[in-house]
């Protein structure tokens, strides 16, 4: 199979378009289609889904003929640490408060760099979170607890 695909980027991008398009068509079947003159909520998404499937199919077919470079490897460590730090922030910010969750965000994300030093990261984390608390909560009045209810203060 993979020897047939001469242009992996076109192939996988095409696969993605088609999958999303097909998904949209299937989900939109639950919505009222209406008619072309009085369109229901299902009309536009179904049409777009169809177009996406078409673009995807062309891209996939093309990948068997045109030659292209391979897809570079994914850097999983960076992905997990950067996105993980963001998710962690989202999970913690209500309970732990802005400062603790930002400290974790900075340390976990900084870890993604190969120049990571715990001491510098800690310092950066403290500075950034205190600055943010002052600017966003004290200054701009955003409704976050600086230290959250989990700490019982």
């Amino acid at each position: 199979m993979s020897s047939l695909i001469k242009h992996p980027r076109d192939f996988y991008a095409g696969l993605m378009y088609s999958a999303v398009g097909l998904g949209a068509i299937i989900i939109a079947r639950d919505y009222n289609m209406g008619t072309s003159v009085r369109m229901g909520p299902g009309y536009f998404p179904t049409m777009l889904g169809g177009l996406l499937v078409l673009v995807g199919a062309i891209s996939m077919v093309r990948s068997f003929f045109n030659k292209g470079e391979g897809i570079p490897a994914f850097s999983w460590k960076e992905i997990v640490l950067v996105l993980g730090s963001v998710v962690l922030f989202g999970v913690l910010v209500r309970g732990a408060g802005l400062v603790p969750s930002l400290i974790l965000l900075v340390i976990v994300s900084a870890w993604a760099s190969d120049q990571f030093r715990l001491k510098t990261a800690l310092l950066l984390a403290v500075l950034t979170s205190v600055f943010s608390a002052l600017v966003f909560v004290k200054g701009l009045g955003l409704p976050f607890a600086i230290i959250g209810p989990w700490f019982g203060i």
């Binding site: 730090s85 900075v106 979170s129 955003l142």
Partner: peptide, 25 residues
């Protein structure tokens, strides 16, 4: 390596402040 964590911090705070929901994060 010192700058990008700060960018992420601003992104995270900026995004959560729009609708006040962690789902956006």
């Amino acid at each position: 390596h010192l700058m990008f964590p700060v960018i992420i911090v601003f992104c995270a705070i900026g995004v959560i402040s729009i609708n006040n929901t962690e789902w956006d994060v």
